[in-house]
Design a protein around this nucleic acid. Sequence first.
RNA 1: GGCGCUAUCGUCUAACGGUUAGGACGUAGCCCUCUCAAGGCUAAAAUACGGGUUCGAUCCCCGUUAGCGCUACCA
Length: 483
Amino acid sequence: MTEQTSPRVRFAPSPTGYLHVGGLRTALYNYLFVRKAGGTFVLRIEDTDRTRIVEGAVDNLLKTLAWAGLNFDEGPGKGGERGPYVQSERLEIYRRHTDILLSARHAYPCFCPTKRLDAMRRQQEKMRVPPKYDRHCLRLEHSEVARLLEAGTPHVVRMKVPESETIRVPDLIRGNVEFVSDRLDDQVIVKSDGYPTYHLANVVDDHLMGITHVIRGEEWLPSTPKHLLLYRCFGWTEPRFAHLPLLLNADRSKLSKRQGDVAVEDYRAAGYLPEALVNFVALLGWNPGDEREIFTPEELIREFSLERVGKSGAIFNVEKLKWINQQHLRNLPVGTLLGKVKPALLADGIDYRDDEYLARVISTMKDRLSSVGDFTSFTIYFFRDPGDYDETALRKNWGEHSGAHLKALAGRIGAMDEFTDQALERTLKELAAELKIPPGKIIHAARLALSGISIGPGLYEMMAVLGKETVLRRLGYAVERLG
RNA sequence: GGCGCUAUCGUCUAACGGUUAGGACGUAGCCCUCUCAAGGCUAAAAUACGGGUUCGAUCCCCGUUAGCGCUACCA
């Protein structure tokens, strides 16, 4: 076996309207593998099912991949030597290759109407035998075939699967997997509308595009022997295969819509960082062999290897994603975070005053933030006076004398020159000592008055960020409202 | 039904025949403390089952069970 010096891989999604997180992981593993090896990453659009074309899907796919940072080297909009990279633009190529198979008798036209096939399948299911095409049209006389073709009879093309052969699929992740050819159906490779099915288009394109490693989801493993057969029919050397374990719903079924968000776009909209989503998804089926869990994209490229990809499916666990996102978030410089948070605030209709103020809010809240999407609700009191006070907090932290305490506090604060958290702490503690009460009494009431809720950063820090004017206004408002 | 894949804490996983089966998320408790979705510590929590092979099996083999995938003129 000759080792490829420069591998070429591809990600070949169908344009269904959005990028599935399972697709993201497949794309990611291809990307990591080939970037580490210094090879070429090809993007190919598999749009041979005309009934499922979704407008704008390719654009959206491109955008989403770019957001995730998975840049490809050849593909739609990018060009390359082996294009076109959209299957619907390669019909002539498939036609040529179908003719090759047809004349070598590795494939044959099939004129069976759907009605007949359905009836046959129902019958086979009733008889409890594996549903398989009965080769009715393979037994047609040549003259009859010619006549039907001549008459323009609608037909498909099927591949002729050899009998009693054991087909070994060497898989980089699963080892050798063996299939008996008798179990394989005479797969349709060209539909009656003239478009190829996945099996034909995929094999032809992978070969023509010089793909060396096919890294794809496990759902393709059962059809790989058919693909191998096609490579053989054409006399082509086959690529290496790596079938990735599936991403699962919480109930362990294949990850699907209906059970939560599966579109990468959803996570993007929810405010997750692309590098966090990528980090998380990388860990679903792969690990570095030690206990590190937080990786930048560059580190992932350095560490990744197919050898450390597992075999069993993994449930997509949003809780862990949140944690990973938080880790990435806190590693971000304030300036970078500012750029991400600003549009979110604006979209929520928040006037964030100015960048300098926002930067101060970010630095005090950074370590507690789990996603950019949560930023507004999490920091709202930095931008708006609290409307209502949290009821539980009110009951717990607002006492008979709280109003008087805050009034006194406001008096002291009003007299302060230097408005820093240290000075604020001193002021508040002095007041508490004079009133002969624990500082906590004032602190809790003040927190409630200033933020309306009972969670947040340290009170002194919070006051310093809010500024004297705001603090006094809110204290006064609380005294007035709550007595 | 047939074919295939898979099987370690609830979840993601480590342990490439010898470990008190490790880590992380989540959960619970404690600590810090003015609160918390922050930080620190601790705890509960797993080798699906049955046979082999071996001095010794999470690990290798066989079977069972379970889950999933495929079984389209979808990919």
